[in-house]
Amino acid sequence: MYKIESKNVDFFYGPSQALKNINLAIKPNTVTALIGPSGCGKSTYLRLFNRMNDLIDNTKIAGQVIIDGDDIYAKGVNVDSLRKKVGMVFQKPNPFPKTIFENVAYGLRVNGITDKKFIEERVEETIKQVVLWDEVKDKLKKSAFELSGGQQQRLCIARALAIQPSIILMDEPTSALDPISTSKVEELIYELKTKYTIVIVTHNMQQAGRVSDTTAFFYMGELIEYDTTKTIFTNPKVERTQNYITGRFG
């Protein structure tokens, strides 16, 4: 049983086709890295899983994206509850203009949870989960903007975890962070794998190699190769994949 499956997915921005016939299946509790040069469609593909592309005018999708056995683009699908199940961490840390506590509590509150005690416990639990608790426990009532970039990104991960999704999408989560913060986030991804299915877009080959179990290489809107990370990095079947990984283009 796969957690996420995409079958013959085409995606269009207006007249231009961004994804061409993508077939891919992701097992639960794994980390899948999407790699490829800029503009290859990997971010677009990632954003299909929580229907984030719906927000962009003039887009069109064909094919099926199946999560937990249900086609998420079928008619009558509740997008809000889909997004509750599929959390997302963005490229740049984007905390809300609220306190640290309220940032993490946000997802709970918008999903109708009002039990104060439950929210407090959940917030503490998730901030501990992202190993941020010791750094922020004394300033939960302060603005999230007072944190450093790395702390903000971990806070954003905590924010996504608070509503207990089963899938976490990460769109280049460390591209705006310094090396130390990056390694902290990577460690975190490794730990989160036991509970969540993670799909991560990255430009950093080493990162893909370090954190992922499987890797998908995209080029010009096509899925060129998809295999275990070990195979992709040591023995890729397609020459273009090899060229990209060894840095000969892209």
């Binding site: 509850s81 997802g107 918008v110 999903n111």
Partner: peptide, 9 residues
């Protein structure tokens, strides 16, 4: 997007 991605309407 962050808000919408958390299931907010």
């Amino acid at each position: 997007e962050a808000s919408l991605a958390l299931g907010a309407s």
